[in-house]
Design a protein around this nucleic acid. Sequence first.
RNA 1: GGCGAGGUAGCUCAGCUGGUUAGAGCGCGUGAUUCAUAAUCACGAGGUCGCGUGUUCAAGUCACGCUCUCGCUACCA
Length: 548
Amino acid sequence: YIVGTCPVCAHEGAYGDQCEKCGSSLNPTDLKNPKSTLSGKTPVLKETKHWYLPLDKYQPWLEKWLLEGKKGQWKPNVYGQCSSWLHEGLQPRAMTRDLDWGVDVPLPDAEGKKLYVWLDAPIGYISSTRQWAKENNRDWELYWKKQPNEEDNARLIHFIGKDNIVFHCIIFPTILNAYGDYILPENVPANEFLNLEGDKLSTSRNRAVWLHEYLDDFPGKEDVLRYVLCANMPETKDNDFTWKDFQNRNNNELVAILGNFVNRTLVLTHKYFKNVVPEYTNPQAIDEETLDQVKILREAVQTNLDAFRFREALKEMMNLARLGNKYLADMEPWKVIKSDEERVKAILYVALQITGNLALLMKPFLPHKSAQLQEFINLKVSDWDLIGKKDILPSGHTLGKSGLLFDKIEDAPIEAQVEKLKAASKAAATKQEPQVAPAGEEITFEDFTKMDIRTATILEAEKVPKTDKLLKLKVDTGLDQRTVVSGIAEYYKPEDIIGQQVCILVNLAPRKLRGILSQGMILMASEPDGRLTFVSPKQAVINGAEVR
RNA sequence: GGCGAGGUAGCUCAGCUGGUUAGAGCGCGUGAUUCAUAAUCACGAGGUCGCGUGUUCAAGUCACGCUCUCGCUACCA
């Protein structure tokens, strides 16, 4: 909105950001004789004060702490994104805003200033800890402050998505470090994005699975969702949540492998030994070897959890149920019972130990079902360290009342969810009233008539090289044929718009974009999400017709 | 356009510092089995490791070029 004389080449029509004559990029304050393009008056420089985080000053520290210190430790996607930012060079970042809503800047000379959300939000992690500590009679500083002995420090780990990497890896650590005695994030195992039925999640488009609705639709299945989300976690690249996959994983994995193993063990114990854990006499090598596997699987789960490989950890947990199924299939207690009840006692003893250990091993992933299984088998203790014990359910122990841990999900509710999703996003798309831009300032009729808008036809269109959004158009305005550069390439392909009739502002001052002189501006309807659509006469009219 | 991450069986992924016939789970096929929610167990069929060139005795694994997906960034009169 500002023109003036270029300080480099003395061209008089230079813009506030760039001089087209010499191509220099400028700041508005660099211009000599600046004038407003709206009113023609000389702009007044108004100061607005903002507080900055001088990230540039901490660049050397970040390079050492992050680039050197976290190399090979942080996930490639996280480390790569951070090093990309650091290589571009950090700039001071404004931490205050001129807004009429938000958290006030708590400084005497900061009237009307609000804190930038990403200064504020991570500090909320600390204040919420303080609040929690207060309510629970704990010392919050143990969780955030550096302790006299480094090994006593709390470990700070941020579980986030990739869109939050910069705030948790660069900005927040810089603040913590600058402040002084706070611990720093040990790791930030950010995930990629999870899509929903092949498209991005979007709460504004109501393209989401709302948790309260899920719990209504699938009561008691909170752990099923946990399981599917964990098994499908976008740890290395974007992934897709589909209801079909949800159903398959429930039916083929939770029901068929885990639930089924538990069920058959408990049913057999009930049938043969009246729900009491039998004696473990004359164990065979296979029995001991099978029980030895439990500890190995626990180690595998643990190692993977420590390394934030949750999908793999989950798979190892399921392997314990697989081990149990295989053991039962190999031992065939339902056959042996006909000839050797003593042997069946040992077999079911082993199967029950696997079940007991499984109840504990699944706890990090399926907390509700873990508790439920503990009730089934009347297991009161739940320490992780117990996993591997070969007598977690000792002989003579009476089991509880059992049922089914998981049940099958039929096609109908799954299809209903898919339909619901479609209907919801369709409804959201048609509604769409909110967040249209408010009406602009009142202008006079003369102001309006200054704009000469005409109908025109696009004759040629090509993408401007090295840009994503720009198309170079040749249009027939009725008056002439001229070149217009337009930022519509995301929504229109060049070959699709040739012959398209549009409206064009013909008396707009020409402007060079990417080295191409753009003479005029194509009128577009711009929706809140940024989508653009041509504003065109409904019926074909001559080129050059005045639009009023 | 620049930068980052990813592209390995139908699907989701593993393959560390290059080394014999590329692995797992689910799905699929065949067989076994019946204690179990037609669940389970065994066996099997599926892969030009995105494309190309190069380095090497040897490349999914290294180098260069290209291509596709996601993200950050620039351009959007």
